[in-house]
Design a protein around this nucleic acid. Structure first.
Lengths: 168, 168
DNA sequence: CCGTACTTTCACGTAAACGGCAAGGTTGCG
DNA sequence: CGCAACCTTGCCGTTTACGTGAAAGTACGG
């Protein structure tokens, strides 16, 4: 029962922990077409290809795809904006390779510093969106409060006497 | 200098506090075309037309348009979703008229209750989006922390001796 | 080795959300 | 009343983010 992905034919991934496009698409809740399109826009690179040129994805790819989807669905960023944010991520990945390529502590510190700056940038973008959204929530809650106040007034009026018009 | 909107010809609005499409568009930061399109989708109704069929907007219209824009830009909702949320708002407006049309406290309570429910619905939608966004912020912050920890380690290493590889 | 399901690239189709233009009517200062 | 600037309703064009085949290759259990 742990084998949800195999379906009918194929073990899913050739032999390693690599998945084919349909499976990753299903895992993150999208379609193979979208994943290919995202790749076409430079949002990710399949990490590997099979003998017959099948796209093969590893866990970091899946994470990345999930992040993309979240940025699109939850944050409402356009793929172009996401491309900006992931240009950062891509640089980070390349930085990861460079990081292990060097032993120079100074170089490593520079790479890590860059990475931190990129994260801070992402956080800023997300936070500003959270704040604006929160403002909308607050405003709507204020309206709700006013409506509830009116309801309370009316309820009291109904319970007691029917005098003059209250908040008008 | 307080007359930013008039431009060259016209007082902007015929005589009352009503504005023409270009001015409201400018005020909320969009184009007349978009405003007309939003109207076409049923997101709002111009509230008034001039003698020559010019669209005329009042302050509540502007508020509504601002809300629409915020939902689109900040919350990232599609116009279709906004239409859903504003179907509520539209009902609210109609409810407003109905509210003043009746004197029956029971009827008024029902109308206010409906309004409150609509607001709650809107708040729920916005809040769930805030939460998902906040999760993304948290995750990114976690990564930032880890990166900073690495930096600290490296800095200590550099300041002291170069022993074995730390967190690896 | 065979059949079926999955995958590839190419290409065209589409819904959403407008942009832009045309042809004609409106406003309103001068 | 004249004319510049703005508005109206079409209507077609464009960008984004995919959907949907078509034609051909691949993976693999039987």
């Amino acid at each position: 029962m742990t084998d949800t992905k195999t379906g009918v034919a194929g073990t899913g991934a050739t032999s390693a922990g690599l998945l084919r496009i349909q499976e990753v698409a299903a895992q993150i809740g999208t379609t193979p077409r979208s994943v290919r399109y995202w790749e076409e826009l430079g949002l990710l690179t399949p990490a590997a290809r099979s003998e017959g040129d099948y796209r093969l994805y590893d866990t970091t790819d899946v994470e990345r795809l999930r992040f993309i989807k979240a940025l699109r669905d939850d944050a409402g960023f356009s793929l172009a904006e996401i491309a900006q944010l992931l240009e950062d991520e891509a640089a980070r990945e390349r930085g990861h390779a460079a990081y292990h390529a060097t032993t120079d502590p100074g170089e490593r510190l520079r790479i890590l510093g860059d990475r931190a700056v990129r994260f801070e940038h992402q956080i800023d973008m997300l936070r500003s969106k959270v704040e604006r959204l929160q403002t909308m929530v607050d405003e709507t809650e204020a309206r709700l409060s006013r409506t509830r106040a009116k309801i309370a007034d009316l309820t009291v009026d109904a319970g007691a006497a029917a005098g003059s018009e209250p908040g008008r």
